[in-house]
Simulated scan of single mutants.
Amino acid sequence: MIQVNLDRVLVDRKMTSKKLAEEIGITTVNLSKLKTGKAKGIRFQTLDKICQVLNCQPGDILAYVADETEESD
């Protein structure tokens, strides 16, 4: 499972979701879907813009967390 840590990075950078959405050119609704993990995917172009604006790496925003069912196999 992919965990999205965008809220934490936004807090660290003292930036609002609304401001980030404006800076990267997406709607606040789509950014909210990304932040909550409800988005089915993310374009590399969008990820690139987020990293540019927040001065971070993709690994600061996204993390892989093994499912409990995978660990028990």
Rank of each mutant, 00 (worst) to 15 (best):
E71D: 10
V9R: 06
V4C: 13
G37D: 01
G59D: 09
V4I: 15
T69M: 15
I61V: 11
V9L: 09
K49T: 00
D48M: 10
Q57W: 02
Q3D: 05
D48S: 14
A21Y: 08
K19F: 06
T16S: 14
S32H: 11
Q3T: 11
K18C: 05
K19G: 00
D7I: 08
N55I: 10
T36N: 13
P58L: 11
Q57V: 15
D12S: 08
L62T: 01
I42A: 07
I2E: 05
T28Q: 07
V65Y: 09
G41I: 14
C51Y: 01
D73W: 12
K18L: 10
K35G: 07
R43A: 14
V65P: 03
L10G: 06
Q3K: 13
D73F: 14
A63S: 15
E68M: 12
E71T: 10
I50E: 02
T28Y: 03
F44E: 06
E68G: 08
A39G: 02
N55P: 02
D7M: 12
A21L: 10
M1L: 11
I50Y: 02
L34Y: 09
Q3Y: 05
N55M: 10
D67V: 05
T69S: 15
T28N: 04
V65K: 15
K40A: 12
V11N: 02
K18T: 15
M1F: 09
D48Y: 13
T27H: 02
K33E: 07
T69W: 15
Q52G: 03
E68N: 12
A21I: 08
E71A: 12
E23A: 14
D67L: 14
G25C: 04
S72P: 06
I42L: 14
M15F: 07
Q52H: 10
A39S: 13
L47R: 00
I26F: 06
R13G: 04
D48R: 11
E70D: 15
A63I: 12
V29Q: 08
Q45G: 05
M1V: 14
A39L: 07
C56S: 03
I26M: 12
Q57A: 08
N30M: 13
G59F: 00
M15C: 04
V65N: 10
A39W: 06
T46R: 05
L34C: 06
Q52D: 11
L6K: 07
I2S: 03
L31N: 00
L54Q: 00
T36R: 11
N55H: 09
V9D: 00
P58C: 10
Y64R: 07
I61M: 04
K33F: 13
V29H: 08
L6I: 14
M15P: 06
Y64T: 08
N30W: 11
C51W: 01
A39Q: 07
Q57H: 11
R8K: 12
Q3W: 03
V29C: 04
R13E: 04
N30C: 09
